[in-house]
């Protein structure tokens, strides 16, 4: 597990363009979104940050064609999948800490009055991330670069579109539709089960895949 996380973080911090994206997400959102939607912005930042951390290894493996090399190391495919699914929680935590510090600094310097920690949003962001990852992961584990990239692009743009409609229509629009579903404790249970099912499906798919 440690080896995998070490690899992910090394990759993330090695790439200049990646770093720039990570550093500019918050400023961009702050510029694009209305001051009234700070709550939702926080939500989006958490989600996007987690996505970036989580999807990085897939992207790099595609770009650098390193799948064969990585899978020749002493690592079971099942374990690779498991670590991916567990790492989502770790990266979610990292994005909470990262955005917390970033936004706290912005607030302290008086640039903008932002929230740097919102438990309610955290509670909504986590299920959202888990739910979307449950779909993204099996696709990425099963399919080759092109197909997986299409799916990822779809998901990213979906989130981006949500951000834009959010900034146009305000909070109200969110409480309908998907976000409306993200309330209630039973939902967390459903999501957890879905996550585990997704994990098992990914394991099966990845184990049987020819590289």
């Amino acid at each position: 597990m440690f080896g995998t996380i070490n690899r992910d973080l090394t990759l993330i911090f090695s790439n200049k363009s990646q770093m720039i994206i990570i550093l500019s997400i918050i400023p961009i959102y702050l510029l694009v979104l209305d001051i009234n939607q700070m709550e939702r912005m926080y939500f989006l930042v958490l989600v996007m940050m987690t996505y970036i951390f989580v999807m990085t290894p897939f992207v790099f493996d595609m770009k650098s064609q390193t799948l064969s090399m990585m899978n020749s190391l002493p690592l079971r495919r099942k374990d690779t999948v498991l670590y991916r699914y567990l790492s989502v929680f770790i990266y979610f935590l990292i994005s909470i800490v990262y955005s917390g510090i970033y936004l706290w600094v912005i607030k302290k310097t008086g640039l903008m009055d932002v929230e740097y920690f919102n438990l309610k949003m955290i509670k909504e962001a986590l299920p959202y991330v888990l739910a979307t990852v449950s779909i993204m992961f099996p696709a990425n584990f099963k399919f080759g670069p092109r197909l997986a990239q299409i799916l990822n692009a779809f998901l990213f743009s979906f989130t981006a579109v949500a951000a834009i409609s959010l900034s146009r229509n305000g909070l109200g629009s969110l409480d309908k539709g998907i976000m409306g579903l993200l309330k209630g404790p039973s939902l967390l249970l459903v999501i957890s089960v879905a996550y585990i099912i997704s994990l098992l499906v990914s394991m099966r798919l990845y184990e049987n895949r020819d590289l």
């Binding site: 070490n6 090394t10 990759l11 090695s14 790439n15 790099f60 650098s64 064609q65 390193t66 064969s68």
Partner: peptide, 14 residues
């Protein structure tokens, strides 16, 4: 194939 943007040492560390 290795991760292109990393150095030899970084790749080795991974």
């Amino acid at each position: 194939y290795y991760y292109e943007d990393l150095s030899i040492r970084q790749m080795k560390n991974i």
